[in-house]
Design a protein around this nucleic acid. Structure first.
Lengths: 366, 366
DNA sequence: GTGAAAGCGCTAACAC
DNA sequence: GTGTTAGCGCTTTCAC
């Protein structure tokens, strides 16, 4: 196999098994003497007066079982309240039927709809989706990919830029995962997302059309590809309009929280020569921006116009309603899930990268 | 065992295996010929020149292994890139080390912080948390509890009122789960939450102290205990102040979405005799209410004051900032996780119900 | 159409 | 300290 040559960091950790989760199991506190609760397939077989093989066939919907036999088995199943032990089944079939979805922050509403899209497709195909909040913590990110290596999940969909960057660096290319929203086309990992460059350009061109020439950018960390792409879209759109971008109107944040947007906006607006419009690369940021502007006495859009990105459901509810670049969130999730399923079904086929269309939604904030 | 006597509904479903997920496995589409990829513990043992038992001991951090031997094993592990197959381990130990968390809607920010609390405690104890969005869909709710019955998870924390109601009805009392936020003290399921009756009373008393006497209530479905408790708190607080509650100022919604709050508020505000204050039982609703009021030309708080419930991070960001009843979200999650872990460690001990303190946060909306 | 038996990869007695 | 071995509960040849 082609997994990482350097399975984990435990060698370098001093304390015995404090951080070595990926190789040495954490000591379990007083293992309960779990009585082998529940009936097994053998019990059902006995009750039904057939062999375990027959029970298994019925359970798995095989055709070659006489109806009368099938009925006997089903009756025994109902009578005993038997539930298949999937741990055993999965060991035997070497699949867990679990899909991981890694997001940097479940609290960011942008991810909720994407997650729903993934979940619905997964469910349709007999998989459960396991949602993981990486919290942008490298340790957690790593541990989730380890879930894959240790066969607790069959595949993963990653929405966390930080995780993706890291994952691309390591030899995780052989792992069954796909990237969603954040990705690098140059690497061989299947992905789905939007054209961030064009989308950002569209936002800026909208502002230009409204007569703005002093346009600020509140971006996230340019370590992320989407941040670089949106920034480039912003810069190029300005230059195409004959405007030289002003460095003082550009900020890079390491958070997408409302608060981060609010304080950044306050800084931007209180400069001597303040921008007349602000493009924030996320709706959460933009909503914070509106709040921040108001807190320093600026009116939106009269004093300063604001454009966001994502079109979360909240965007239409704030005051003023937010102009924003809509991403097809549900479709992004659905597509990501389908790509992953495709890759799982055929590990060799090279799954394509997919770009979905975005849309500018004009509301009251511009 | 004492699971449900009526394991599932498959008997009553007409189509062969369409809805019989809980007993008959969905047909898998073209099972990939998974080559037994990866090295097993036997391979490591061979490479290290020891027995599988020794490898297992090293992997599980047992003490009785000579340092030299341990080093040999660790070297073989690193060289081979071996990862333990948890499917096998879990089958053997009869535990999955997975905890389920069921929420009705991952998009509702109220749950995000609770989920983080759960996750952090779970993680500290060597468990992974699996987040499930029930979407208030009975089929999905049921399928998640089935995950427990089928041993794919060791325990569950349920935040979905609808699921809890249903779960209490069925004979799922023997399953290892706890209720969080929504619960019924009368039933024997461990729970953690707040005193909804007092909290709602506090909100209303705050409005009364501000001089309001026409106070409306935007509630969710009274099928939920928390909704009934908050309603009762609202009613009693009014009566204690000598006010006869006006039925026209009370609405019950079957959604907590922003939109639902917005349209309800519009209805309430446009009555002949409109309330001068509105208490909404969730911040998402309250934020929608503010938007809805504005859309019909009402100013907050000048024309109508608004109080929410939960204190999600967004509450401080909207305009005007929302007065609300803060729930200790992180602690709710942490406590729920601890209760579950406790129950898992000792299935017989009767785990208590826990009530955590709430707090009224006064901001600009009142 | 049904049963017997092998074995998935691991842990934990039990020997030595 | 270390090795041998018996399962955990299931699916799946291979016989019959």
């Amino acid at each position: 196999m082609t997994f990482s040559r350097r399975p984990d960091l435990s060698k370098t950790s001093s304390k015995a098994s404090s951080r070595t989760v990926s190789r040495v199991r954490p000591p379990r506190e007083a293992l309960p003497p779990r009585p082998s609760e529940g009936i097994s397939i053998a019990g059902v077989a006995e009750q039904a007066g057939v062999s375990v093989a027959t029970v298994s066939r019925v359970l798995n919907g095989h055709e070659n079982v006489r109806p009368a036999t099938r009925a006997k088995v089903l009756a025994a199943v109902d009578a005993s309240g038997y539930r298949v032990n999937e741990l055993a089944r999965n060991l035997r079939t070497a699949e867990s039927r679990l899909l991981l979805t890694m997001v940097p922050d479940v609290g960011n509403p942008f991810y909720a709809e994407i997650v729903r899209g993934i979940d619905s497709v997964a469910r349709q195909h007999g998989y459960f989706m396991l949602l993981c909040d990486t919290g942008a913590d490298p340790g957690r990110e790593r541990s989730y990919f380890d879930l894959l290596r240790r066969r607790r999940a069959d595949g993963a969909i990653c929405l966390d830029p930080a995780t993706i960057q890291q994952a691309l660096g390591e030899a995780s290319g052989a792992l069954p995962w796909v990237a969603c929203c954040e990705f690098d086309p140059a690497v061989g990992v299947p992905y789905v997302g939007i054209d961030n460059y064009r989308a950002a350009g569209d936002a800026v061109r909208h502002l230009l059309a409204r007569g703005h020439r002093r346009i600020g950018l509140i971006n996230s960390d340019v370590g992320y590809l989407y941040a670089r792409q949106r920034q480039q879209g912003y810069l190029d759109a300005l230059r195409e309009a004959g405007i030289t971008p002003n460095e003082n109107w550009r900020m890079n944040l390491n958070s997408l929280d409302y608060e981060a947007g609010a304080s950044a906006a306050a800084v931007l607006a209180q400069q001597a020569q303040a921008p007349s419009a602000i493009f924030a690369v996320s709706d959460t940021l933009a909503i914070g921006v509106i709040h921040g502007l108001r807190s320093v006495g600026k009116r939106v859009p009269d004093d300063i116009a604001v454009v966001g990105f994502d079109d979360i459901s909240l965007a239409a509810q704030v005051d003023p309603p937010l102009t924003t670049v809509a991403q097809p969130m549900r479709e992004l999730g659905e597509t990501a899930a389908r790509l992953l399923l495709q890759r799982l079904a055929n590990p060799l086929a090279n799954v394509p990268g997919v770009l979905l269309p975005h849309r500018l939604v004009i509301r009251g904030s511009t």
